[in-house]
Computed example of a mutant assay.
Amino acid sequence: MIRVGIVGASGLAGGDLIRLVHQHPGLRLTFLGGESSAGRRPAELHPGLRVDLGLTVERADADRIAERCDVVLLATPAPVSARLAGELADRVACVIDLSGAFRIRGQELHERWYPKAERSAGLADRFVYGVPELVGDALKDAPLISVPGCYATAITLGLAPLVLGLGLHLRTVLVDGKSGSSGGGLQLRTADLHPLRNGAIAPYAPTGHRHAAEVGDFLERSKPGTVGSLTMSAYGVSHVRGLLASCYVFTDEELDLRELQRAYLRFYRPHPFVRVRRSDETLIPMPDPQATLGSNYCDVTVLHDPDGGRVVVLAALDNLIKGAAGQAVQALNMRFGLPEETGLTMQPVMPV
């Protein structure tokens, strides 16, 4: 059994990590870390976890963690992850970070979007950007893995068949993102109070989002295709889980819908957690985030708009599972040579 520690156990992603690790046949939960929640049991923090794990949350001491864990999952804010990853690197077999501390490789771009997450450039260069469908063998035996952001996962999976599969130059990509309140974590902000959030479509990042910078940074290093400019506007909507990334792609390439659909099906045929869907294949238009909730699936649809001269790519997922905890476990599976779907075969729950 692989011994697993989770730091940031009181957060939303931390709760889903506890649930997924607990039900995983090849993992054993041996450490729960946190600061403000130290001394509390998981069931106190996460009402859905009515199980006795034999653990209480402890302060995140690197010596204690290294002694009891083979792999550590950091569901902590970026500044905390930057510090803990430095303390734990080379002391455990693998550190998997769910924060933004190591997602952006370039130091200047990182400092723009994560100014409080101070890190050494040498340590950042050692992290594998952990979207399993796109980095493949790089995860095997990787000692340090950075899990992409929830929006970045959807956008990158949506664009990969165009950039990495067909090798296209995407002149301009405009992303419209909509996500539920869980994307902001458990921090108390006035704008997230129920009287203001319920029924709202709140443009909280209308002119830029750090996940777009993350995607651009990754795709710039991933050939054969290229992206000229990628910009994003993000909106908060009133549901809790799930997000939809609508990518409007402008390219000078001659494309048609059938060619695009074949390219997406071919690209994701080996990957069980990306479902390529037609927009009209179910009772509701696809992809819809509610058809992914509780699962590790990302649903992707590609459309061609010849009148507008654009390709439209829609990607939906559960931001706490495929966008966070589930993807982390998927990367963990691949890192330790387990089938990537181990412990992640749950189907979506719908309606919600």
Rank of each mutant, 00 (worst) to 15 (best):
I6S: 11
D16R: 13
L17C: 05
V21F: 02
H24Y: 07
P25C: 11
L29R: 03
L32C: 04
E35G: 14
A38P: 12
H46Y: 07
G48Y: 09
V51M: 10
L55H: 10
I65R: 00
I65E: 00
R68Y: 04
C69A: 14
V71M: 07
L74F: 13
V80E: 09
S81Y: 05
L98G: 09
A101K: 09
Q107A: 15
Q107E: 15
D125T: 01
V135E: 12
G136P: 06
D137L: 03
A138W: 01
L139M: 06
D141A: 15
I145W: 02
V147P: 03
P148K: 07
Y151K: 02
A152R: 11
A152P: 11
T156H: 00
V163N: 04
H169V: 12
L174D: 11
K178W: 06
G180V: 05
Q187V: 14
P195H: 10
L196P: 01
L196A: 08
N198M: 12
I201E: 13
P206D: 09
A212D: 05
F218E: 00
S229W: 04
T231F: 07
C247Q: 15
T251C: 13
E253T: 14
D256T: 06
E259V: 12
R269K: 13
R278H: 12
S279N: 11
P287R: 05
P289T: 06
A291D: 04
T292K: 07
L293S: 10
L293Y: 12
S295R: 02
C298G: 10
C298E: 09
D299F: 09
T301Y: 10
T301Q: 13
V313G: 00
A315W: 10
L320G: 01
I321G: 05
A325W: 00
M334Q: 15
E341D: 13
M346S: 14
